[in-house]
């Protein structure tokens, strides 16, 4: 068995013992299911809230099915990202702070394998959780609201998944260069918020930004096509992810392990 796979397997086992394999898919599934449910029952909820003047007819149109999927992305972008950052903030930082890393790296283990196995294991967990949540949302939307074309839904799944991949990679990057998991989480969430907000306002200037991926995913789910500069954003995002990973390795290689 290759050394990389041994490291990868250890990460998966750790996530299992930490219950990450339970709670991460659960969070995404709950978010995915709740979006179509609340959309469907929103008129009823407002009606029972009883704040409307007597005699007024409530007519809140139920949005088309693709919009419900797009709203699910919105949920994933908030609590989903928060959960991903919290789950991966300590992935390298924790091992450096506790000293477990130096006992492993005193063995003939390459630092690239050490980092990339952690990154890959976290991504496996991320994509699985996201898949479960997305499938749940799609199915409930189908039951309660209406159909979404399969090719569109699948295309959007992969495009939005790339944004989550970026978020995880960024967190792993910060976790590699810093020792304090709290600061890692703070910086990761902070920069993801800024990237996302800027990409939604400076649409022209930041057309290449990974922060635009959610816009493209929402567009794909309803029209089957990305918004303007879709392929630019797609390729730049993949590029940034690769660069971040290599940079994390490079900086980690320079690090001296003193506890």
């Amino acid at each position: 068995m290759g050394q990389w796979f041994i490291l990868f397997k250890k990460e998966c086992m750790e996530s299992w013992r930490n219950y990450k394999w339970l709670w991460m898919p659960s969070v995404f599934l709950i978010l995915g299911l709740m979006q179509p449910i609340t959309t469907y029952y929103l008129p009823d909820i407002l009606a029972t809230a009883g704040e409307l003047p007597e005699g007024s007819e409530i007519s809140i149109p139920i949005p088309p099915a693709p919009d419900v999927i797009a709203a699910t992305f919105g949920q994933f972008s908030q609590i989903g990202i928060l959960v991903l950052v919290l789950a991966s903030m300590g992935i390298v930082a924790g091992e450096r702070a506790s000293g477990t890393a130096s006992m492993i790296l005193a063995r003939p283990v390459s630092r690239f394998s050490f980092i990339s196995a952690k990154w890959a294991a976290m991504l496996l967990l991320t994509w699985l959780s996201y898949l479960v949540g997305y499938a749940g949302s799609w199915y409930y939307t189908f039951l309660l609201i209406g159909e979404v074309e399969a090719t569109n839904a699948i295309g959007a799944f992969f495009v939005y998944g790339l944004w989550l991949t970026f978020a995880v990679t960024l967190t792993v990057f910060f976790s590699t260069i810093l020792k304090n998991a709290g600061i890692v989480a703070f910086l990761s969430i902070g920069s993801l918020l800024v990237i996302s907000a800027l990409s939604h306002t400076l649409t022209k200037l930041l057309a290449w930004s990974p922060g635009r991926l959610s816009v493209h995913a929402s567009s794909i789910v309803s029209t089957g096509e990305g918004a303007d500069h879709f392929f630019l954003a797609l390729s730049v995002s993949i590029g940034i992810i690769i660069v971040l990973l290599i940079l994390a390795y490079y900086l980690f290689k320079q690090k001296e392990l003193v506890e």
């Binding site: 490291l7 930490n18 063995r107 506890e259």
Partner: peptide, 29 residues
């Protein structure tokens, strides 16, 4: 590195592993 065995002053293990699991992991690495 494969020629040396190293015990740091404050050895830190994965708390969630069993003793045997840690040794097997170390050996495989």
């Amino acid at each position: 590195r494969n020629l040396i065995g190293y015990l740091p002053q404050y050895p830190a293990f994965y708390r969630w592993m069993t003793g045997k699991e840690y040794l097997v992991y170390a050996a495989e690495l």
